[in-house]
């Protein structure tokens, strides 16, 4: 099998890349696009560290052959900051001290953002379910859940911000 050209937008920027057959999206993002904020934790779809958005849906980039994302809009953690302004979720992770080693953080934020993008005021249970595919081995789950709920509360007070985010 030969390499093929694959086109997609990454954080709003158009990309056209020559990709070896079967190459995982996580490797293409990290090694060919320099988007190393997306982490490879297990390579088998069980830790969630590689979560990115494909056309607005949270997906595991370690399980996706990159050929499949041709024509898609991809957002990674690097695309969550807009005009150097942190997203409310990122601010909330800082305020709630929701990071420890940081290796799961990008995946957590991408999974949480996918939730808030479609459900801006989720219940605690909905947050837990949205993050259930993301593992934190420092086991700081409570501050992470608190951060997502705090971000939702901020969005509720700022409907304009919610629309812009």
């Amino acid at each position: 099998m030969k390499s093929s050209y694959v086109s997609f937008t990454l954080n709003g920027e158009e990309k056209e890349l020559l990709i070896e057959p079967g190459r995982r999206l996580v490797d293409v993002l990290r090694e060919q696009c320099g988007a190393t904020g997306t982490k490879n934790g297990c390579g088998q779809g069980s830790c969630g560290a590689c979560t990115v958005h494909i056309d607005g849906v949270a997906m595991l980039s370690c399980l996706l052959p990159a050929e499949l994302v041709d024509g898609s809009e991809i957002v990674t953690i690097e695309g969550v900051v807009r005009n150097r302004v942190l997203h409310v979720l990122q601010e909330a992770f800082l305020a709630q001290a929701a990071t420890q080693c940081g290796f799961c953080t990008a995946g957590m934020i991408m999974a949480a953002k996918a939730l808030l993008d479609c459900d801006p005021s989720p219940s605690r249970q909905a947050v837990i379910e949205a993050l259930s595919g993301n593992v934190c081995r420092c086991t700081g789950y409570e501050p992470i859940i608190a951060a997502v709920l705090a971000a939702a509360a901020t969005l509720a007070k700022r409907p304009a911000a919610a629309a812009a985010a």
Binding site: E78, Q90, G102
Partner: peptide
């Protein structure tokens, strides 16, 4: 705040 928290939440 942890000194590395900002770079953790931005993926940097």
């Amino acid at each position: 705040p942890r000194i590395d928290a900002h770079s953790h939440v931005t993926g940097a």
